[in-house]
Design a protein around this nucleic acid. Sequence first.
DNA 1: CCGGATTTTGTAACCGGTTTCATAAAGTTC
DNA 2: GAACTTTATGAAACCGGTTACAAAATCCGG
Lengths: 358, 358
Amino acid sequence: MPRARTTQTRATETVPAVADLRRSVGLREVARAAGVSTATVSRAINNPDVVSADLRERIAGAVKELGWVPDGAARALSTRRSHTIGAVFPALSVGDFAHATHAIQSELSQAGYTLLLACSEYEPELELHQVRKFVERGVDGLILVGQAHHPELEPLLVQRAMPFVNTFVYDRETHGTCIGPDNHKALVTMTDYLADLGHVRFGVIAQSTRNNDRASARLEGVRDALALRGLAVRPQHFAMGEWTIAEGRALFRKLMDTDPRPTAVVCGNAHLAVGAVLEAAAMGLRLPEDLSIVGYDDIEVMSHLPVPVTTVRVPSAEIGRIAARVLVARVEGKDYSAPLEAVAELVIRASSGPPPTP
Amino acid sequence: MPRARTTQTRATETVPAVADLRRSVGLREVARAAGVSTATVSRAINNPDVVSADLRERIAGAVKELGWVPDGAARALSTRRSHTIGAVFPALSVGDFAHATHAIQSELSQAGYTLLLACSEYEPELELHQVRKFVERGVDGLILVGQAHHPELEPLLVQRAMPFVNTFVYDRETHGTCIGPDNHKALVTMTDYLADLGHVRFGVIAQSTRNNDRASARLEGVRDALALRGLAVRPQHFAMGEWTIAEGRALFRKLMDTDPRPTAVVCGNAHLAVGAVLEAAAMGLRLPEDLSIVGYDDIEVMSHLPVPVTTVRVPSAEIGRIAARVLVARVEGKDYSAPLEAVAELVIRASSGPPPTP
DNA sequence: CCGGATTTTGTAACCGGTTTCATAAAGTTC
DNA sequence: GAACTTTATGAAACCGGTTACAAAATCCGG
């Protein structure tokens, strides 16, 4: 900014103005400027009440004047606290996780913490690697997704007494370390709802359950609920693939290419459901008269499609928020009790109804 | 490990076996165990070639045995490098940003860096705050979005010689510090395309341009392109709001509630476009016979709607990847030249065509 | 105005790595 | 084998804060 009066004087001296640029100001400099010891400056920052108002003011002045910014690394080294929380998600661009990330970040930021983010790409090996990196970075706690981790993961954390929470899962067995919906129960509920409407021939379009205990649990939910009624999904009515709209369309088409067709199709996630519903429309099938389609996770478009889609609403943001709070509390030794099971609500819309009467 | 021969002797002394649990192992311990100095251990880790194979092996053994993990804070303090990059996005759950985040993270991780993530909620004040926090945390570089920042932001970074890049914008003037599409140009192209089809009455549905120079630039693009042909958007054909599908529907309805109606509606982002298209369908309008609707940003659902939507494809992931690479290169003093302008490609689908012949 | 309790402040030892510089060991050359 | 490089190691200073402990200043009742 200060374009200065360069040409003003007769270019006699070469200005050594840039002088102090290199030597960054530290606590020592501030202390000297304020005429106190470094200990006092440190106290004035972290524990103002124990410093006399007089000095506190002088120090504040010096800090501002020198534009001092405390060095996080030094502080972390000294206090053994980085005020940093690491989160490892399987993917970052998936709606749920993106919303959770946002909530976590915002909650942490408010509590004076910073979020370190990494991605495991649904690979336990990579998850372990990322966690290890975070431990090296000195995070104060960790947020993970799911309960099924690499076998070395838990020992690593337990050994270092590193606080962590598993999100997007809930299970009475491990209450206290997990925060999320009960995936199994959610799909039992959904399946019961459909079965109660009279459906008997169920189809399932699922995302890969590889390294994904949430998806597995959901699948099991459908199976278990059906089994209780003596029903099962026929092999040709079951399809598994990626979690894209395109895949949803393709798999749905495959399911419809059978005889008899299923009368209710349960989709393992939102994108698959959107794909299935759009493909059904393209095929000229009427929902719910000809068949019912339901999804999992309530992204905005679900309720706006020509036929709004019945689904399970997962409060991702809330899960993130609670995870962050619980973790921060644990790190700081306070205790914060919150409901750890996130209720996954069944949202019934027009895409589901009684099976067609033959 | 050395569970020792505790019960060997007759349980005389109370075993202080748990002893070393608390005292975490540090470089010193490793050095002692390997019978070398700390300097050598440090070198064995960071600069293996200068250490003899013999010692290197002994040290590796000690490290593994003691389960030592280097302390990032100490290292950061000593090297003045945190191997950490901060990114501040206006929002995290928006598709573009989520994809970019993912790409950045993955790229950084590969280069041995960790991503710190924060969110500005489209508030310059908050952005500044987050950036400040990151500076304190000692990040090596910063990734921002847009070019319009809080006035104190750039000075803060420049003063500390902190490398940074602005993403999702491109502008010849500031080449070198920005990576993204030329938002203005993209919408000029789009508008020209529509005008060339014969459209004259344009409608615009835009997201708020408050603190969003990308959205503003896009809007200007439409205006400028039209002005070149002596055209302008009538006030009643212009609507602005949030960036949700619901809002898109509402605003579209409002635009259609005019006489004469626009024959081409340009939407400022993907969600608004999806909403507009779905509302058009609900209103029984045929695309593109009755009118054309186009969007910005190509999310998957755009191509799967009953009438696939013409839009501009923004390579968010690529933007993130390049940003990460450029920044890392800059931090490490290498130079890495990459195309900084991300081409925003016009994707023409069924939702646009010539205006109806009256 | 004194002795003891209380509050403020300073000194210096950490935190756990990296790195400079000196020294010891090994290798080269003639 | 002496003189000179080159290479491998160690001792100790340093990065920039925090904090235990001691010393100094202030307050207080009697």
